[in-house]
C-alpha cells in the first residue's frame, strides 16, 4: 500500500528538502532530537516542583505541622483533669513531661493512621493523578522512558513521604519543648528517666524506623497507583490494606503468623526509648517491611512497563 502516497507526496518532499538543514537536527545513532538524552529526562527537581504546589501537598503538610500545636493546646486546656491511678504509666500520661516525651507521644498517636494516610497519599497519587490529568501520556511521549519515569516519581514520592514522617516528630519536638520544656525522657511503664542527650540519637533511630515501617504502605500505594487512573483508589486501597492488617493482627489465633503482617511491627520503635534499647523487634520490622516493599515495587515496574496507557 505504499503506493497510496502517489506522486504528489514525492513532489512535496522535494519542495521542502532544503529545510532539513534548519534548526532541526538529531542524533542519528538513536534517532533522537538534538540534546535529548533518556538519562536527563524528568529531573528530580522538576518532579518535586510539579508536585509541590498541589493543594493536597500543602494541606497534608499543614496538617502534620499543625497537629503538634493542636495537641499542645489540648494538653494545656485539659491539663486540670487528673491522671488515672493505674500502676503503669502510659505514653499519653507522660506527654507533658518534656519535648522529647511529647514528640514520642505525637509519633505514637499519628503513626498508626495519620502518617499512613500521608504516605499513601504521596505514593498512591503520584502516577494515578498524572493519568487522571491525562498528562501521563505526554510525559511518556516526550519521551521519558517508562522505568525512568517510575523511578523518578517513586523517589520524589518517597522524599515527600519521608518529609511528612520527619516533619511531624520534629515539629512536635519543637512544640513540646516550647510548651513543656527540654527535659529528660520518662519511659512509659516504669517511669524511669533517660537523659535527653542520650535519647536524641535514639530518637533519630525511631524516626528512621518509622520511615522504614511505612515503606510497605508506600510501595503498595505505588503499585496501585500504577494500576489505576483514580488517585483516590490507590490511596484508599493502601489505607484499606493497613486497616485489614491491623484487624488481622488482633486475631490471636493466628499466632506467629501475625509477625509477617505488614503492620505488626509498627510500634516496635517504642523499644528504642527504654533504658536498655532492644532492637530485635525493629530488625524484624525492617525485614518484613523491606520484603514486602521490594516485591511490590518490582511488580509496579513490571506492570507499568508492559501496560497500555489509555488514559
Amino acid at each position: 500500500m505504499n503506493d497510496a502516497n502517489g506522486t504528489g507526496a514525492a513532489a512535496g518532499t522535494d519542495g521542502s528538502g532544503t529545510a532539513l538543514a534548519g534548526p532541526r537536527g538529531h542524533d542519528t545513532a538513536h534517532g533522537a532530537a538534538r540534546g535529548y538524552a533518556p538519562g536527563h529526562t524528568l529531573p528530580l527537581g522538576v518532579e518535586i516542583v510539579r508536585q509541590f504546589r498541589r493543594r493536597r501537598t500543602m494541606v497534608m503538610f499543614g496538617l502534620l505541622l499543625a497537629l503538634p500545636w493542636v495537641l499542645v493546646v489540648a494538653f494545656k486546656v485539659g491539663g486540670g483533669w487528673g491522671r488515672p491511678g493505674g500502676a503503669t504509666l502510659r505514653i499519653s500520661d507522660l506527654a507533658t513531661e518534656g519535648g522529647l516525651n511529647f514528640a514520642a507521644f505525637a509519633l505514637s498517636v499519628s503513626a498508626s493512621f495519620l502518617l499512613v494516610v500521608a504516605v499513601a497519599l504521596f505514593c498512591g497519587d503520584t502516577v494515578a493523578s498524572e493519568a487522571d490529568w491525562s498528562s501521563l501520556r505526554y510525559l511518556l511521549a516526550a519521551p521519558i522512558p517508562r522505568d525512568r519515569l517510575l523511578r523518578q516519581k517513586l523517589i520524589v514520592a518517597l522524599v515527600y513521604s519521608a518529609a511528612a514522617v520527619i516533619c511531624l516528630p520534629l515539629m512536635a519536638l519543637l512544640a513540646g519543648t516550647l510548651a513543656f520544656g527540654w527535659n529528660d525522657v520518662r519511659v512509659p511503664g516504669t517511669g524511669e528517666t533517660i537523659a535527653a542527650l542520650d535519647v536524641l540519637p535514639r530518637f533519630g533511630i525511631v524516626i528512621g524506623y518509622a520511615l522504614v515501617s511505612q515503606l510497605v504502605v508506600a510501595s503498595l500505594a505505588f503499585l496501585l497507583s500504577v494500576g489505576t487512573d483514580s488517585p483516590l483508589g490507590a490511596v484508599g486501597g493502601a489505607v484499606g490494606l493497613v486497616i485489614v492488617s491491623s484487624i488481622l493482627q488482633a486475631v490471636d489465633a493466628l499466632g506467629a503468623l501475625r509477625e509477617f503482617l505488614p503492620t505488626f511491627w509498627n510500634t516496635a520503635w517504642l523499644d528504642a526509648l527504654t533504658p536498655q534499647p532492644d532492637f530485635s523487634g525493629m530488625i524484624k520490622g525492617v525485614a518484613v517491611s523491606v520484603t514486602y516493599s521490594a516485591i511490590l515495587v518490582a511488580f509496579a515496574f513490571r506492570r507499568f512497563r508492559s501496560k497500555d496507557v489509555v488514559s
Partner: peptide
C-alpha cells in the same frame, strides 16, 4: 524516521 517505535524510543523526541 526509520526507527521503530517502542515505549520510550528516543526517536519520539522528534
Amino acid at each position: 524516521f526509520g526507527h521503530r517505535v517502542v515505549p520510550g524510543a528516543p526517536v519520539l523526541s522528534r
